[in-house]
Simulated assay, not measured.
Amino acid sequence: MRGRLGVVLSGACAAVLLAACSVGPDSGRPAVPDDAAQPHLQDPAPPANGTPPTPTPGTAQTEAAGASPHPYLGMWVTSDGHIRQELLPNGRYDEARGDRQSAYTGSYRIIGDRIDYIDDTGFTADGTFDGDILHHGGYVFYREGSGAHRRAEEGRR
């Protein structure tokens, strides 16, 4: 009897191990290719001011599959251009400050008009989108090249 129990337990352990290997890291969901699912991007809520964000062409991996890119992907800049933050389609961001490229890097998640950041050192922050404007960390960012960005640049002159 003891030998059969060992075989049954060994089989159960193998089944648990196989099941654990079939899910993606830290997700509890089956692993999927990066371009098949982008859980860091959720459908955006309409902006509070009613102005839809300007889509950035060619920034989402899903675009090749015929889906529209997420409207918040792309480059966001302060009116003086000192801080430049790129939201990449793979759930990562890269922020430059002045001449310092990649001053801050990490991951993000967008739900509705809210963005949550976690940088590679573990620091967390958040922000809120309002059309082509992003409020984050006490700064106002503008989608690079948008009407809101041009108006902010003109206001600085």
Rank of each mutant, 00 (worst) to 15 (best):
G58K: 13
A67R: 12
S79K: 14
D80G: 06
E95Q: 15
P33Q: 10
T105K: 15
A14D: 06
A103C: 07
A37G: 01
Q38W: 10
S79W: 10
S68L: 09
S79V: 00
G66V: 02
A64Q: 14
C21G: 09
G74E: 03
T51G: 01
R92K: 13
S79T: 01
Q85A: 01
G11C: 14
L17S: 05
P89K: 08
V16C: 05
G11D: 08
G58M: 11
P33H: 09
H82D: 01
Q42S: 12
A96L: 02
T54N: 07
A19G: 08
E95L: 14
G11E: 09
Q42V: 01
Q101P: 02
A103L: 10
P53Y: 02
P47F: 00
P33D: 07
S102N: 14
C21A: 10
V16A: 11
E95I: 06
R84I: 01
P44K: 01
A103F: 15
G66R: 12
D35E: 12
L88K: 11
A20R: 15
A31E: 07
G98K: 06
H70S: 00
V77R: 14
D26P: 03
I83S: 07
S27M: 04
S22M: 12
Y104W: 12
A12H: 09
P30T: 06
N49D: 04
H82G: 00
D43T: 03
G81Y: 09
G28K: 14
R29E: 07
Q85H: 08
T59L: 13
H40R: 09
